[in-house]
């Protein structure tokens, strides 16, 4: 499996929805569609702000508690990004369809995976942000997300960014963090036991991945390339370039 490859994204892949995106990284492929602002149902209607509806659909099997949990996490994060107050009494609907998740050749996967909850969050969040951008929904900021695992080997702990399913299984704790484009911490989900010190390390690593282009803006490309080797791709730069490609293609006629 080529889990360490570069992230790939395509915007506006679905012709019928207001905005859509397809994103694949680390073995996960997610397609998202955004419709909105559209008419909200009476029971979802909110007098002062838009209702953000997030639907996560697994590749195989019907959605269960696992998906509901992911939806809750994502909804809480996305509300912070979208300018919901701009669209009272309306609905912004985000559907996230997981198309592929990384395979583990050494285990026969069951349909319902009780664990493995958090590993998919970065992909889902990233796709959702891309789709929202594609739908031109006004947002306060964009967000980037990363997953970091803490592995314990011979008593010493080691941080692994974007771990594979096998590494997650062996890890002592797994952390998902998301940062806004203003470098604010948007989301932090942790599983397993860890110390405060470990968490601080994880925070620094994740921040480095998510907010790198902000931090190293003036220091030239050399520096960025060096860092890429140890902590994976620069997510914010990736988000930017994905959009730039799309805009360039759209404005090709100009």
């Amino acid at each position: 499996m080529t889990t360490k490859r570069e992230p790939e994204a395509a915007l506006s892949v679905l012709p019928k929805s207001d905005g859509s995106a397809r994103y694949s990284y680390a073995g996960y492929t997610v397609t998202a569609s955004v419709n909105g602002p559209i008419e909200a149902q009476r029971r979802d209607e909110h007098a002062y702000e838009a209702h953000v509806d997030v639907i996560v659909r697994p590749a195989a099997g019907v959605g269960g508690t696992r998906e509901r949990h992911l939806e809750t996490i994502l909804q809480a994060s996305l509300i912070q990004l979208i300018l919901v107050k701009n669209f009272p009494r309306s609905l912004i609907q985000i559907v996230l369809q997981v198309e592929a998740s990384p395979e583990n050749d050494y285990v026969n996967t069951k349909l319902m995976q009780a664990s493995l909850n958090s590993a998919v969050i970065p992909a889902l969040l990233q796709t959702a942000v891309l789709a929202l951008l594609s739908a031109a929904i006004p947002m306060r900021a964009t967000a980037t997300s990363a997953i970091v695992a803490v592995m314990t080997q011979d008593g010493a702990s080691r941080l692994v960014a974007h771990p594979s399913p096998r590494e997650i299984e062996a890890a002592q704790s797994v952390h998902v963090l998301a940062f806004t484009s203003q470098d604010g911490l948007l989301l932090a989900e942790s599983e397993g036991d860890f110390t405060v010190k470990e968490w601080d390390d994880v925070y620094d690593t994740a921040k480095k991945i998510c907010c790198k282009s902000g931090a190293t803006k003036g220091e030239g490309i050399e520096m960025v390339l060096d860092e890429q080797e140890d902590s994976g791709p620069d997510m914010r730069q990736f988000l930017r370039s994905a959009l730039e490609t799309k805009v360039a293609a759209d404005l090709h006629w100009k």
Binding site: T31, I38, I55, Q93, V95
Partner: peptide, 9 residues
């Protein structure tokens, strides 16, 4: 076959 709002709201 479950049609999600992705196909149409």
């Amino acid at each position: 076959t479950e049609l999600s709002p992705m196909a149409s709201p």
